[in-house]
Design a protein around this nucleic acid. Structure first.
Lengths: 146, 146
DNA sequence: CCAACAAACGCAACAATGTTGCATTTACGT
DNA sequence: ACGTAAATGCAACATTGTTGCGTTTGTTGG
């Protein structure tokens, strides 16, 4: 099962057009295995406790950035102002659809809904992108809060 | 007019049951005058450029915390993970309308448009806020770019 | 108005998180 | 296998926020 996951992450990374390194595979595996978005520190801990050699702090930051840049991971901010990362579903493109962002864990969930039509803009304004983001508590955090 | 605002802030602070200090009044005035939530750095700059003596960094943090603690200010996190503060009184429901964010100058413009109805959420999710953000170039930046 | 006390302030140092520069190592197409 | 661009590791730095502590200030009771 570890082999399966590893192979899958490897394929995803290769398909994204970036180099397949052990660090990227390990981080993407960890993100895929996590049920909640992870922050840098949690990932560092998790990777250090594994058998393999631990990743450098800065390298981990750069790996996360690269995964976000090539669309394999999502970056969000939790209520304490800390960046949290989650694995993006590879088959989805995160443009032009609706997101739900949990304000507690920072998780991003893609909703199956149409983007609403944009309203009229003031004269001279040029529209390039539409973000329709719903914010609140996800099922897990909502349960824990109650 | 400045006196009116100052008196109002003073009253609010006194009514909140905490000491009325020059720092608290100045900060609450600044928050009330701001059209957008301000971060610590912006407030520090703004207060330093005024005639009066500038506030200590730590004092500003503590003033903001105290204003939040007594309900006069609201604390939130922006997309970069920085805390932003707004006056609780001046909270004219920035939540329920549409914003246009200029990707060049960073300006935020409130549009007079209805929020589209939210789509159905997965079971257990609690909706708290809807952000319908349009991004692109504002009239000024668009003209300059062309 | 004055004194006393708790709250608020200023300063210094610290802590957590994230970034940049640069030399070395590694993945991968040829 | 080799060359090259990308990725890594290390050190130093930057930004944002917090804690400890001695001093000043706002408020309250006489």
């Amino acid at each position: 099962m570890a082999a399966t996951t590893a192979a899958s992450s490897t394929d995803l990374i290769r398909a994204a057009g970036v180099k397949v390194t052990r660090g990227r595979v390990r981080v993407l595996d960890a993100l895929n295995a996590a049920r909640q978005p992870l922050c840098h520190g949690e990932l560092e801990l998790q990777l250090a406790s594994a058998d393999e050699a631990s990743l450098d702090r800065v390298t981990l930051y750069r790996i996360l950035d690269s995964l976000v840049a090539c669309g394999l991971a999502l970056k969000a901010v939790d209520t304490r102002g800390v960046f949290r990362f989650s694995a993006a579903a590879a088959r989805h493109r995160h443009v032009d659809h609706v997101h739900f962002r949990c304000i507690d864990c920072g998780g991003v969930f893609c909703l199956k809904a149409e983007l609403p039509p944009p309203p009229k803009l003031p004269r001279g304004f040029r529209l390039q992108q539409i973000d329709f983001d719903l914010r609140g508590l996800c099922a897990e955090c909502g349960t824990r809060a109650a």
